[in-house]
Each structure stands twice: as structure tokens, then as C-alpha cells.
Design a protein around this nucleic acid. Sequence first.
DNA 1: CAGAATCCTTTACGATACTG
DNA 2: CAGTATCGTAAAGGATTCTG
Lengths: 114, 114
Amino acid sequence: MTKKLNSDPVCAVDYAFQRIGGKYKGRIIWYIHSFTVLRYGELKRSIVGITPKMLTQTLRELEDDGLVNRRVYNEVPPKVEYTLTESAKELIPFIDHLREWGDKRMGNYKIICQ
Amino acid sequence: MTKKLNSDPVCAVDYAFQRIGGKYKGRIIWYIHSFTVLRYGELKRSIVGITPKMLTQTLRELEDDGLVNRRVYNEVPPKVEYTLTESAKELIPFIDHLREWGDKRMGNYKIICQ
DNA sequence: CAGAATCCTTTACGATACTG
DNA sequence: CAGTATCGTAAAGGATTCTG
């Protein structure tokens, strides 16, 4: 199973934050957007330090919420590609805004991302 | 003490989400923005179900992160007002966009907020 | 390669009572 | 009114091992 239900959202802001909150969701969406399409292993290498469990779990939640598409190729070795849905793409301009906002204020933390 | 350090953000997106994540931050920012200025008790009544502990803790984190101003009047009974900083105001278009996005997709949950 | 399974730790959050 | 303090629960996240 993917995850416990979040507590019911009490408003749209709340609802939205529940979908894209969590430790990795913002980054995952941003990375997939940056590369248009990413395989599981590529994501794994991009999100430094994430465990396979968390990556899978987070991707499933995003899929369940209609934010990412999961495409499985029937090959050996296996190949799975992740892309953003149209719904998720609507979020990009403002995740970008958020990124700039964060960038301006990060100061010390200057580990590069993306 | 207000809170444990979040794990170090690894990029600007991450950094930003850490500042405005959590169960109540989005809503608190949104409410203060809607009313321009809110007292502690008014916030308490707006954020239905929040405990004083969580409200205080969340407000302190927002203050520490430079997102809200806390103004204390030296009166009896006490009076404390919260407003958004310029930095937080930059986030409003983003949160508004997010709110619209959430609103479009909420479906069932139609408890009104604001 | 792309994960699933299991177990465990940490952190967020909640209930309740009290105070200047 | 605007908080603190203490204690407890639940959810999020991590480590490690295994598999089709």
C-alpha cells in the first residue's frame, strides 16, 4: 500500500500542499520537468540519498494524485519511465518561482542542484 | 525551542518547500495575507482545530524564517499582531496559483475556506 | 533494472492543563 | 489574551536485505 490518507484538507491551499508536500515531491517534479522524462534509476541518482523505498513510495503517491505518468516497457532488463502529467505541468511556473525565491535566500547552502 | 533543524536542503526547491511545508504554514500565510494583519486569537479561530501549541510553534518558525512579523503591544490584556514580511509577500502569487490549482481538483472536499 | 519486504528511528503533531 | 509546559501518539522517513 502506498500511504495513509492525509487528514482531510480543509481548503484548496491545504489540499494542494498535501499533494506536493513531503520531503521529495517538489524535487522529483522539478527533476522530471528538467529532463522531460526520467527513468527510475536516473531519478534515484538525481535525488541524492533517497532510498528505493522512499523513491517508489513517493512516485506512487504522485501517480495516484495524477501528477506523474509511469510507463513500463516490457523488456529485460526492465525499463520504467516517468513523465509529468498536464496537471503537474501547470505547477511548473510557480515551482520555478519558488525555486528562485529559495535561491535568493539560501545563503550558506550552496550545494548545486540541477 | 522552536524546532529541530530540518535536514539540510540540497537545492533551492528543497529549501523553499522546507520553509512553507508543514501542516499549517500555507494556510497561515494565506490567512494573514487575506486580512493583512491578524491577532493570535483571530488566527486561532481561523485555523480550525489547531492547538495553541502548534499555532505558536508554527508562527515562531515562520518568524525565524523571516516570513512573518510579530508585533507585541504592551497592553493589558495582551495584544499581538502578525503580518507578512516582504519576503513572504513574494510568495503570495505562488500560493494563490496553488490555491486555484487545488480548487480545480478538489472535487469532493467542498468545505469552504476563506 | 526497478523495485518489494521488513523492521526500526525520528519528527511532526495532538491533548490537556496551566500562567503572566 | 496570548501564550508555555508536559506528555503521548501517529505518521514520515531510513537501513537493510531480497527478487522477478
